[in-house]
Simulated assay, not measured.
Amino acid sequence: MSGILAIWNDCTEGREAAYEHWYQHEHLPERLGIPGFRVGRRYEAIDARLRFLTAYEVDHLDVLGSKEYRQRLENPTEQTTAIVKNGFVNMSRTVCARSQIRGDIRGSIVVTATLREGDPTSWFDSLESSRYFSDGATHSEIWLSSENSDARTKEELLRGRDAKIVACLYLEYLRKEPAIQSAQELRRIHPNADIGVYQLMCSLTRSE
């Protein structure tokens, strides 16, 4: 089963330039150099609680527990250490399995609806019969937490304990207006979910 490493975070005020330079020139290329990492996408908030969303799509879930990936997490570079210690704020990071993937056209505007606790089964059952998978969305996925270890890596120890989600409904749109409308409706119907609207900043695909 393919997987997603789903990350939401803010950036320390005054560190934005260093943060962006590190992401574009070191971190994205480094992560996409790990075997099994397929594509990395970075988004910035249009209307969301946290400013940034990063989603790393991997060939299968085992990639996110692989020796090569763990080695990177346990041996951060000098720049990574600096940014992780003073750059990442309000970090949420969860290894997820991808399911119910629909739509071949990828949009640049994203709505994420996340649950932080509880059993998401009944919530997703209600969404399954709703319009959110088809009305205006070009692509949709469900991400289900597949965290299987409480062990903290050196990177996490540097930045402090990460928050986790149990599930996420992920929707892509071509334009901002229908995405915002969908987010507003989701907030009304599902007040316990954390709903955000994001715009694609950049993406990097693994070189074959």
Rank of each mutant, 00 (worst) to 15 (best):
M1F: 03
I4W: 09
I4K: 14
L5V: 04
A6I: 10
D10E: 09
G14D: 05
R15C: 09
Y23I: 07
G33V: 03
I34S: 05
G40A: 12
A48N: 00
D59G: 04
D59M: 03
L64A: 07
S66R: 01
R70E: 14
R72F: 08
R72K: 13
L73W: 04
N75A: 15
N75D: 12
T80G: 13
T81L: 08
N86A: 09
G87R: 00
G87D: 02
G87P: 03
R93W: 00
A97D: 12
A97I: 08
R98Q: 13
R102S: 14
R102N: 14
R102E: 14
D104L: 08
I105G: 06
S108N: 14
T112C: 10
T114A: 15
R116D: 07
P120H: 06
W123Y: 10
F124E: 07
D125F: 10
S129Y: 09
R131M: 08
F133M: 09
F133G: 15
D135F: 10
A137E: 00
A137D: 02
L144P: 01
S145I: 03
S146H: 13
S146Q: 15
N148Q: 12
S149D: 11
R159G: 01
D162Q: 09
L169G: 09
E172V: 06
Q184M: 05
R188A: 11
I189P: 00
N192F: 12
N192S: 14
I195K: 00
V197Q: 00
V197P: 00
L200N: 04
R206A: 11
